[in-house]
């Protein structure tokens, strides 16, 4: 085959051949990764399948009737888990935005409030914060339902961590953008709302998606209050009652895993859409 003959319809250029080889290599890689995943999954299932092995041994046996009996009860917590995470991420996003603006402010008190908040929250455990709002506040006469204590604690906590994302987003917008808006006669407020924030948010949304996924898992900590009937609470509740913790925790783990897989998929879609009109 003549590589350099461009006139004949069949001959491909060197670049095209290289590209195709590259593509073949990539798809072969993806296929191998997929097969290995499948293998690992099969091994995992095998370990918990109670299969008989030689010498009278067998893999771990699960009480499958118990599992199917309680599947619906545990699954009933998915809504609460997602609900807590949604409320918390909204609170966290608002807090993170204010903290980021404060962090970029040249007005000392604003800068101080922002850094103080971030330092205090990042310096203490999330678990402690949840208990603080649920158990410590009642001593001061403020009684929050478990759900709200959880949402406030998660929101405050993630807000502090996410402020860094928003700060990076705001700083990613060049000074020229602001100047162009001001030169058009836009007020600083409008410049922020219409020019800087939309660009900063576009930068911040994918990592915020990551935080949301992390939060759906950290929401399990709220079960410790005993009053929020989300996935984790339901799993431990029936697990303890019948000493079937292995079964119920496995069910909960599967639900969390599927949930995060779903969310990761959607986050991937958002990320793709967000790159529209990129520089």
């Amino acid at each position: 085959m003549n590589l350099f003959n461009k006139d004949s319809g069949e001959a491909k250029s060197q670049a095209e051949l290289l590209y195709e080889a590259q593509m073949r290599k990539e798809s072969r890689f993806r296929l191998n990764v997929g097969l290995t995943w499948l293998l690992l999954l099969v091994i995992l299932i095998f370990i918990f399948s109670g299969q008989a092995l030689p010498f009278g041994l067998h893999t771990i046996k699960l009480d499958t009737t118990f599992m199917s009996d309680n599947l619906r009860f545990i699954a009933g917590g998915i809504n609460t888990t997602i609900g807590i995470s949604l409320l918390s991420i909204i609170l966290a996003t608002a807090l993170a935005l204010f903290a980021a603006l404060g962090r970029l402010s040249t007005f000392p008190p604003l800068y101080a409030v922002s850094t103080f908040y971030v330092s205090l929250i990042r310096g203490t455990p999330l678990f402690l914060q949840i208990f603080f709002f649920f158990l410590a506040l009642p001593q001061l006469g403020i009684v929050l339902p478990g759900l709200w204590a959880g949402v406030i604690a998660l929101g405050l906590n993630y807000g502090a961590y996410m402020s860094e994302i928003f700060r990076a987003g705001l700083s990613s917008v060049s000074k020229g953008q602001r100047e162009a808006a001001l030169a058009l006669g836009m007020t600083p407020g409008k410049t922020m709302r219409r020019i800087v924030l939309p660009q900063a948010l576009r930068f911040a949304i994918p990592p915020t998606g990551n935080e949301f996924i992390a939060m759906t898992k950290d929401s399990a900590l709220v079960s410790a209050t005993g009053f929020v009937h989300e996935l984790m609470w339901r799993a431990t509740e029936v697990g303890r009652a019948h000493f079937r913790n292995l079964e119920t925790l496995i069910i909960a783990a599967i639900f969390y895993w599927i949930l995060t897989l779903f969310l990761s998929y959607f986050q991937g879609l958002i990320e793709k859409r967000m790159s529209r009109g990129d520089r």
Partner: peptide, 27 residues
Amino acid sequence: TGMVFQEFNLFPHLSVLENVMEGPLTV
């Protein structure tokens, strides 16, 4: 006054039409 910058400074999140509309619209 109108100003034109060395680095263009077009708004990357807006279409060409929206870029030009932005001033009349918001100001």
